[in-house]
């Protein structure tokens, strides 16, 4: 057996890989933003004194966290189709990833909210802050700051998981790899290259979140330590 690796044959397709990587990042960013919003709302819902609301949020979180993303993607894809709604593969992929990461984010942010010491909230009440002010200034931002590293990891995992959307033919990085390898018969080189691109993308995302953390948590920047 003679093993000949031909990376140049793959590398000359770099514009395709660049497009795929860009689409992967777009999927990740959309799902991160929307999933983050769902996470905050879901965490407030789970802590709500309204039993029905809190129950619904728990069912959502447990349902998503205990089923595979692949099955969720198929359910969203075929579910929308059976309702007669037609969307592009990209939209369906973004929706499925948002629903998925929303559940994990809910659980992480809830942990952050729960970690805010009772005394802080009492102190805020003693200072006659309104309920909205307390939630915003004392629970929401300090709570998110506490779990920011966990959120970062979750969103990087989401970016990696977006590869699964290639199964409904969203044209992201893994789908590009599948196409290139079927065209060139150089599967090994293609997937090695794509693996390297994913490692680079995850490093970029980690660096991005680190920088964002410095911007949105000025106290952390000044003290150099987490809360």
């Amino acid at each position: 057996m003679n093993l000949i690796l031909d990376f140049p044959a793959i590398l000359e397709r770099w514009p395709l890989f660049l497009d795929g990587a860009w689409l992967t990042l777009q999927l990740a960013l959309i799902a991160t933003l929307l999933g983050g919003v769902i996470g905050v709302v879901g965490a407030m819902g789970r802590r709500s004194s309204n039993a029905v609301l809190s129950r619904i949020c728990t069912i959502y979180v447990e349902g998503i966290r205990n089923t595979p993303l692949l099955v969720q993607i198929f359910l969203v894809y075929f579910g929308l189709a059976s309702l007669g709604l037609k969307f592009s593969a990209f939209t369906v992929a973004a929706a499925a990833l948002t629903i998925n990461v929303g559940a994990y984010t809910t659980e992480i942010i809830r942990a952050g909210f729960d970690a805010v010491p009772r005394g802080q909230i009492e102190a805020a009440e003693g200072l006659a802050l309104s309920r909205a002010q307390i939630y915003w200034n004392v629970i929401l931002w300090p709570g998110i700051e506490k779990v920011y590293p966990a959120l970062t990891s979750q969103f990087v995992l989401l970016m990696l998981a977006s590869s699964v959307t290639s199964q409904i033919s969203a044209e992201e990085l893994t789908a590009v790899a599948n196409y290139v390898q079927s065209d060139t018969y150089r599967a090994f080189e293609t997937y090695i290259l794509v693996a390297i691109v994913y490692v680079i993308l995850s490093l970029i995302m980690r660096a991005g979140f680190w920088a964002l953390g410095l911007v949105i948590f000025p106290r952390r920047r000044r003290l150099g330590t987490p809360l």
């Binding site: 057996m1 093993l3 990696l160 290639s166 893994t174 599967a187 794509v194 693996a195 994913y198």
Partner: peptide
Amino acid sequence: VQLIQGTPLLVIMFLSYFGLSAIG
């Protein structure tokens, strides 16, 4: 660890099935 945690499982799966068979 960094390498594996930065690569999607799906790509590892493709690499070990299609990639390895492509190089024999």
